[in-house]
Design a binder for these strands. Structure first.
Lengths: 195, 195
DNA sequence: GTCTATAAGGTGATAGAC
DNA sequence: GTCTATCACCTTATAGAC
């Protein structure tokens, strides 16, 4: 059945995104050609332009979907009662979600410079919205006397960098499970905010 | 004087590296052509091949110099007496050094996937050597009873990710000086290792 | 919706003149 | 050491047949 001519719009679109995601993550946006993406999907390069106006839009689409999905996933999470419980929940959610989508995460911050200025601004807005969820938890905790920290914004950036860094070294099947890793990181986060 | 024909080997080499560093950092290795680098230096593309056998070697040269220089700079630093003082020294050194060389730092971990397998292995060895300096400080501190942490290797990766993350948001002339930022981060590092 | 063919231009790298 | 010219190939994107 492979390569049969005809209409496949409902499955070809997702397949193009999957192939582009994987290839961009492995080789980088600029190093991957439309022909390579088409080859991975099993169509000719011209057919891709039925699904994206150009290569830039394909990249933006991947990043925007990733950020939208991340924000939605966090909105769907429950909200524990105390700042301490909320911070632990965020820590474990962030590690779990990011380890689950390594290609999306990798692209979302490695390929920012390949976005057009307008597309860059749009992704930065979504990223800032996600960071603000953590900053809100930290600020609430400071007001409630649960945390002691010098600057909620800087602590936000520090914690997110620390947590996202798990993706650079964690490999499934290694010395520790994802849950064990999350517990160790939660211990560090908890102490670093003075809780 | 610009573009005069003749012999300039001692100044053209560094100028090529400077131009490549800046262009790779801004646009990415794959998105920059040898003609662009030559244009920034003020020579024709063919002249670059008197200084590098190919584009890949140019990238590797930049990364290797960066890692060599980082390791040498750390070796040149004094060694404070206690684990706590050593950890503070490493924290401040890492932030200062990395804020000082943002292009080198950016390339050194954004362009790893564009290295050939042999070159990648060489850079990873140097990176691991740098990480091991921090891991050594943490392990010593645990043995001396100065730190309480679950896993020296994971704490090493977490602390380095947190500290290097400063480069993603810090801009000179902003709300806080580099020294003030380093002090806030040192407070977080100190608490996260249970000191 | 996918194909083939093509336009218009860029790519890394080399040869040989000066 | 740098230049010009060139090779062989790849690039994104589009046009028109089916």
């Amino acid at each position: 059945m492979a390569r049969t001519a005809g209409s496949h719009s409902d499955i070809t679109g997702p397949r193009i995104r999957d192939a582009a995601l994987s290839l961009f993550a492995r080789h980088g946006f600029a190093a991957v050609s439309m022909r390579q993406i088409a080859g991975a999907v099993g169509v000719q390069a011209g057919a891709l332009y039925n699904y994206t106006p150009d290569k830039q839009s394909l990249l933006f689409d991947l990043m925007q979907r990733h950020m939208d999905h991340l924000l939605q996933a966090w909105d769907d999470e429950p909200t524990p009662a105390t700042p301490l419980a909320r911070l632990e929940h965020f820590t474990r959610f962030h590690i779990r979600y990011h380890l689950d989508k390594p290609d999306e995460v990798f692209i979302a911050y490695m390929e920012l410079r390949n976005l057009s200025p307008e597309n860059f601004a749009a992704i930065e807005t979504l990223r800032r919205r996600y960071e603000d969820h953590l900053e809100g938890i930290l600020s609430q905790g400071v007001r409630a006397g649960a945390f002691q920290l010098a600057d909620a914004r800087i602590t936000t950036m520090a914690v997110i960098a620390m947590l996202t860094g798990v993706n650079t070294w964690y490999r499934p099947g290694g010395r520790l499970s994802a849950d064990e890793v999350a517990t160790i990181y939660w211990d560090m986060v908890r102490r670093s905010v003075g809780a």
